[in-house]
Amino acid sequence: MNPVFQYLRSSIGRKQLMGLSGLLLYGFLLVHLFGNLGLLSGPEYFNGYGHLMLHTLKKVVIPIEVLLLGAFLLHLLLGFKVTAENRAARPDRYAVRASKSPRTGFGAYMAVSGVWLLVFILVHVPHFRFGAYRATPLVTYNGVEMRDLYAEAVRSFANGWFTLFYVGSFLLLLVHLAHGVRSSLQSLGINHPRWNPALDFVSYVYAVVICGGFSGFAIWLWSQGGVAA
């Protein structure tokens, strides 16, 4: 059998792909959070950044988006397949369930949080990336017409339910990352008693920064009450 094919079919190979695709997506979240920082510099800066990424630099950005979409779909499909196999591996459940592991907590919610994040992405990406659901208003700076993503964000987050949906999703993202980051590293074979406490610390801090950062922006926009600052 072709070695790559055999590797991709094996349980370990798939876990490593799951980990790598997850790490790529985590990395993107940090870039996304940096982009959101532009909200603090006001509409002209933020819209200009959006225009730069989605229009001016599209020859670079679109291939990256395709790569991220590929990683996302792979992560999703592997997630479904692995979860189904894992359930099949224990057809009869235990009558009494107990645990001695300190790490099991968040790991039990990977599938649930993952499915929720899929719903979130199906809501969020068409909305802000493609202007689906409703047309993004337009704005013109120095004769260049662009989408007024700032106004769209302010308008959307003024709705408390919308903000609650976002913040709730970020909490589930925190659950997903709290197990996922360290689990990815373990699947890739990164585990050393000297470095494990540091890896734990960094991966938890990373998850908290990402989820806290996104939630902070959502709550801040909501607190503006629909008025562009």
């Binding site: 079919r9 094996s10 349980s11 370990i12 798939r14 876990k15 692995v82 196999e85 894992n86 099949a88 591996a89 224990r90 645990s99 001695k100 592991s101 300190p102 790490r103 099991t104 790991g107 039990a108 990977m110 197990h179 360290r182 689990s183 373990q186 699947s187």
Partner: peptide, 18 residues
């Protein structure tokens, strides 16, 4: 191991604890 129908590892560390 894969062929025999064991599940996949999800790094919950229950094995080590047990």
């Amino acid at each position: 191991m894969d062929e025999l129908g064991f599940g996949n590892c999800s790094n919950r560390n229950e094995c080590e604890a047990a």
